[in-house]
Design a protein around this nucleic acid. Structure first.
Lengths: 348, 348
DNA sequence: TTGTACGCGTTATCAT
DNA sequence: ATGATAACGCGTACAA
């Protein structure tokens, strides 16, 4: 299996042009050392030969990759693809390439990807942890090694870590208060697991609002589960085993809401007539589907921009201490939906 | 901006353990040369130190990356995320890491990503071209350089290229014949641009079926556009400017169908009562949304598996000539929907 | 302005 | 079973 793919190197160009490797290297990188004339000559020739710099060699020698690693738990929903786009945009603007990996909400995958990205010596890491991530040892190690690391959305809390996230607690609270203002009193919550900040905080916000308005929360009206459609489906089914149904359900994510819709179909329940739904986070539920799904809007674009900002500050050693940014959510009564992914993507 | 991140190297371990670098290298890679005892000793120590092999150095020295580059046009729909998952699975199973890049349907992005991946010296490339890709020069160059390259779904046709795709023409034909069998005669097509195989072939299939059944196709009932929601929205609006409306519309993609649904809402048209829709490709349109959206199912999983197979064959030089695989589509009358992205993700 | 020498961390080859 | 040496392709420091 010996292959000889003739990748052009600086050496090849140098020999051919009767100059030194260094000259070629500098010329191609627009180093001021080299005269405009030779630069042009070298560039032209390199181009003709189809020269592609060797990332590894460059990386090894310069000890910089100009690359940041990005790990997300999933891409099958609305939220992360939008966020990824925003991160790409911000990173490219600063001349960083992004290497994207998907953990599929699995802690082992996440670990493996972290190691791969570390071995690539990315300049920094952007991570939204998986739902299953409980062992934070690797992150402590990374922290110790000094590699810039910023969490977003799904974060590990602790003074030593940087992150950018939504104020989930307030978000949930907003949603519930909206429901209450609309006239609902019997409210249930399909929650995320307590192990992850999102599940924890949003549930706390739910409880906050209910307490504030002196509304009771039957124990079995808070159902914990994953953050995906399946959890929504199962959670709703479970909820419906009770004799007394709530009037409205707050779901921890948009995906969970989708699952609820599906379950409602299967049970022959109409939304919002029989039971209503409100959720945190939005997505491409088609407007014709539910006339009434309100939600708490997450400032996705701002989050992407901010998290890249923070990371780059760290990469450039401008941030001495961890930064923790908490963005405000906003209530949004659904009208129409614009899919961010279809927006034009600006050039670098 | 001088940073000293102490990345442990083989050398560090070697010195500390009073062995040579080579021994450490071999031990960590389970080379048969090394005795079990020293292997254990070295591995244990390396672990304690948190050693992470340097991808670049390894890559440079071994001239293999064990990595394949993957470029997709978008991730904001159902199709590509599912496909990506299937590709990941297949690639990981063969011990390849995947580096994913997104072109956002922009030819420049695609080019830039290709160069980045080439510079990383990935072992092979998997590409679904952007809607805007017309200049295929870079692919010819890549082909000449001998780097394994396999297109999927959105492909560049030509005997010199390998690809795995759906039989789009037959798919469209199937869809239209289903519509005809259902009783529809007045059928329009929101098509993709002719520049891309998908737009071309699916439109041809549409025409095939109409001709076969002696049904007329008014010129303005074939409307070309992009493959996204926006195109569906605009296309439908344009279609509705005609005096005579079709009974059903075949959309080139699922995303386009979504756009049609949205436009229908805005126009106050009911689907399927006023006008029906059928499409190629499926997605998470909620079952409660449209009782009648049938579609042509694309064997996503098989496609992902196959394309990785073909690529790895090429990487291992087992395929002397380009391979072109065309998978059969299948008509699917929608009942319920299972989101592939939420399926369990098998470990490597 | 151009070139020389060396090192980056790893692996392959060839000894011992 | 273990080790010395030379690459891999490029960038930096310094010399010419």
């Amino acid at each position: 299996m010996k292959r000889h793919r003739l990748q052009i190197t600086l050496n090849d160009i140098a020999k051919e042009l009767n100059v030194s490797v260094v000259t070629v290297s500098k010329a191609l990188r627009d180093h001021p050392d080299i005269s405009e004339r030779t630069k042009q000559r070298i560039k032209k020739f390199a181009n003709e030969l189809g020269y592609t710099p060797n990332f590894s060699a460059r990386n090894l020698s310069s000890r910089r990759s100009n690359t940041i690693g990005l790990i997300v738990p999933k891409i099958g929903n609305f939220f992360f693809p939008s966020l990824i786009k925003s991160i790409y945009k911000a990173a490219n603007f600063q001349n960083y390439d992004v290497i994207l990996m998907i953990s599929y909400d699995d802690a082992e995958n996440e670990n493996r990807h972290l190691k791969t990205l570390l071995s690539m010596r990315v300049d920094g890491l952007l991570v939204a942890i998986s739902e299953k991530t409980t062992d934070i040892q690797i992150y402590e190690t990374i922290k110790k090694t000094g590699i810039p690391l910023v969490f977003f959305d799904r974060v590990i809390e602790g003074p030593e870590f940087s992150y950018v996230k939504i104020d989930d607690r307030q978000g949930a609270c907003l949603a519930v208060e909206h429901a209450i203002n609309t006239g609902y009193k019997r409210i249930a919550h399909l929650a995320g697991f307590k192990e992850i900040n999102i599940g924890r905080d949003r549930c706390a916000g739910f409880v906050d609002a209910m307490k504030k308005h002196n509304l009771p929360v039957p124990e079995n009206w808070i159902i914990e589960g994953s953050l995906n459609e399946e959890a929504g489906y199962n959670g709703f089914m479970k909820l419906c085993q009770n004799k007394n149904l709530p009037e409205i359900i707050l779901t921890v994510t948009f995906s969970v809401a989708i699952g609820v819709f599906q379950a409602a179909i299967d049970l022959g329940l109409k939304i919002p007539e029989d039971i209503d739904v409100i959720c945190i986070g939005e997505g491409p539920i088609n407007p014709f589907a539910s006339p009434s799904l309100s939600c708490v809007y997450q400032p996705i674009d701002e989050m992407g921009t901010k998290v890249v900002e923070v990371l780059i500050r760290q990469i450039q050693n401008l941030a001495a201490v961890p930064e923790q940014i908490i963005l405000p959510p906003k209530l949004k009564v659904r009208e129409t939906f614009v899919r961010q992914d279809e927006m034009a993507f600006p050039k670098r």
